[in-house]
Structures are given as C-alpha cells and as structure tokens.
C-alpha cells in the first residue's frame, strides 16, 4: 500500500474543521503551559541513580547483576526527559530557564550516549516528515511485527548497517546545525569509547560492560521498539491526524513509556509526556471526529 495523505479524509466541512480545531487547541493549551516538573525530576533522579550504581557495584554494596538490571532501566528511562528538551518544553530560546532546558537535553542521555543536538535535529525531521520513507530519520524501524522490529534494531546496531542519523547529517552538511550536531556526536562517541576502554584496562571491565555497554544496547532496543515502532506502526500513512496512533498495550502504559497516547505528542509536541493521558481523554471525541487511529486493542 502506498503512503496515503489522508488529512481531511473524514469529509468535514470547513466550519466543522474550524470548530474542531479551536476546541482541540483550547483543550491542548490547558496542558501545555506549566513547567514540566515531573520530567525535570525524572531526568536528574534517573541520572543520579545511574551514577550511584558505579561506586555501589565497585565497592560490592550491590551485586553486579542487580546493577545491570537497574542500569538497563536507567538507560531506557533516560531518553524521555531529553525528548522534552528537544522540543524546548522546559524553556524556549530567550527564556530565563533556557539553560536548564539545554542542560537536561545534554545530561539526560549520557547513559544512552545519544548526543543532544543529533537527537534534536533528527527528531524535528521526524515530526516534519513522519512515516516518509525518504525523509523520516526514524523510518528504518519499520517492521511487520514487534519481534521483527527488535531483530531489525539489533541489525541496525551492526557496523555494516548504515546509520540513519549519520546519513541525515551527511545529507545536510551545508546546514550549520547539522555540522554542530555531527561534531558533538563525534566528541561524545569518542568520549564513550575512550571511557569504556579506560575502565576495562583499569580492571573495571565487568562494571563497564554490565553498567553501561550492555544496558545501552538493551535500552536502545527498548526505546526503538516502544518510542518508534509501536506508536507509528505500520508507518503507512502521513498527515497530522493519521501518522501516529493511540493503542492499548497489554502490559500497560508505564511499560510502554506513555506511548499509548503518542498521537497527542505528534499533535501537540509542546505538551509534556506526563499530561498526554489526561489530554487524550479530553480530546478523544475530537480525535474520533477527525478519523484518527484510535486502536484500543491489545497489540
């Protein structure tokens, strides 16, 4: 099936379109405004927990296997606070707390080793071109089933598989933002590999492997599955109201990292993740009238 641009496919007349739009925006504005305290606390508590694991494991306060499980959770959890920063949801440019927005963007994904500027650059393209095979940097995650999506993410981590984010940056070398993102990416990646090797040759190889290297791989698979594959599957449609779905995951919205309501994020990226569910409930009738993909079934 080819990509279908279905915006307006529900046959709404212009007055109805306008009414729905104003109702939608009025509801959305209620949830967008306040500073996302929960997400900021999420960032720093998760990061603190991950850093604390190192001395706790090295000095045998907790066993390595327990450290591995907690570190894997930390890596999986570290992306979403940075995601808010990518959208400037803590503070827009020029605002007093802008420094905090950028700080969270940079430090939150240290366990994941995802350079903030690369994440922001590619994520903005994802929003602009969601599900476009050529222009959406996240399109590579496409797979018929979630199991195949997991296997594909593992394949994408192999050295012979082209890095879709690297490809995007290489295609935009005349853009200063892409150049800066690429440079930060190189520095951060070299720092990561350098620290891993230094730890390994200093007698902390197992700690480096089980607190960072392996958790990062598992976390990457988890994030790719729940944040990219699940909300956009089957990635056939474009258009504001059809490119993302809502769904009910049988393991619950917490396991799905709040992605059951990812459609709300694509409609209103300025709304923090922890308010999406309440906004979804209030917006539901409007989304139904719009013909959105509200798939309330267990996947």
């Amino acid at each position: 099936m080819s990509i279908a641009e279905v915006t307006g496919a529900t046959g709404l007349d212009k007055d109805e379109e306008r009414r729905l739009y104003h109702e939608e925006m009025a509801i959305a504005r209620k949830y967008i405004g306040p500073f996302p305290v929960v997400m900021a606390l999420w960032c720093f508590s998760n990061l603190l927990c991950w850093f604390a694991l190192w001395p706790l494991v090295i000095f045998d306060v907790i066993p390595l296997w327990a450290g591995f499980i907690i570190a894997t959770a930390n890596v999986a959890l570290c992306y979403l606070p940075s995601h808010e920063a990518q959208h400037s949801n803590y503070a827009n440019p020029g605002k007093p707390l802008r420094w905090l927005n950028e700080l969270i963007g940079y430090v939150s994904t240290i366990p994941l080793v995802l350079p903030f500027k690369i994440a922001r650059y590619t994520h903005m393209l994802h929003h602009k071109h969601t599900n476009d095979p050529k222009l959406d940097p996240d399109y590579e995650v496409i797979a018929p089933t979630w199991r195949q999506a997991v296997m594909k993410t593992i394949r994408r981590m192999q050295p012979g598989f082209p890095n879709s984010y690297g490809t995007v940056l290489a295609e935009n070398t005349d853009d200063p933002a892409a150049q800066r993102a690429g440079l930060e990416g190189v520095v951060q990646s070299l720092a990561y590999w350098g620290i891993l090797c230094a730890l390994a040759w200093s007698g902390f190889a197992l700690e480096a492997a089980f607190l960072w290297w392996l958790p990062r791989m598992v976390g990457t698979v988890y994030i790719s599955l729940f944040l990219s594959w699940w909300p956009h599957h089957p990635m056939k449609e474009t258009g504001r109201y059809r490119n993302t779905r809502s769904f009910t995951h049988k393991l619950g919205n917490i396991v799905a990292f709040g992605m059951e309501d990812h459609i709300i994020h694509h409609l209103h990226p300025g709304m923090p993740l922890n308010r999406n569910k309440a906004a979804f409930r209030e917006l539901r009738s409007i989304l139904e009238a719009r013909g959105c993909r509200l798939e309330d079934h267990h996947a």
């Binding site: 390994a200 190889a205 197992l206 480096a208 492997a209 290297w213």
Partner: peptide, 10 residues
C-alpha cells in the same frame, strides 16, 4: 580496546 580486557576479566 574493550573486548580483550573484558574477555580476560570474564
């Protein structure tokens, strides 16, 4: 740089 000392540690 990494796998060698990791294998040795294991």
């Amino acid at each position: 740089g990494f796998l060698a000392p990791l294998i040795a540690s294991l």
